[in-house]
């Protein structure tokens, strides 16, 4: 079978449109979940550093700034886990279905 017709079959398979739209939406959503808090954080760091001044415990020294920065790092990692989990499961299943249906 020619490459051209494999490509046409993939294109015409509704599962391909489903894969692309689901994965794109998911990737964009997660990118926003990472970047919006990050740039908000950076905005306050440079414009209003005092918002980070309250301490985590009464009379303690650790400020919420340290907690937020640590959460940005840990949260960034957790989102990669969420993406990999869905991509390596649901998206890869869809992809292999699309590929096997196209080469039938």
């Amino acid at each position: 079978m020619s490459q051209k017709s494999i490509h046409d079959r993939i294109r015409q398979n509704p599962k391909f449109a489903e894969l692309v739209s689901k994965r794109t939406a998911f990737a964009v959503l997660l990118t926003l979940i990472v970047l919006v808090p990050y740039y908000t954080f950076m905005f306050f760091v440079s414009m209003k550093p005092q918002v980070f001044a309250s301490t985590l415990s009464e009379g303690g020294v650790l400020t919420i700034g340290w907690l937020i920065a640590a959460v940005l790092v840990a949260g960034g990692w957790i989102t990669t886990g969420i993406y990999v989990n869905r991509a390596n499961g649901e998206f890869d299943r869809l992809t292999s279905e699309i590929l096997s249906e196209a080469s039938k």
Binding site: V34, L35, M42, A69, V73, G76, T80
Partner: peptide, 15 residues
Amino acid sequence: VYAVCFFIGWPVILF
């Protein structure tokens, strides 16, 4: 803050 800046590109690279 600097460390967070060096880190935050990685999730985006994945997505």
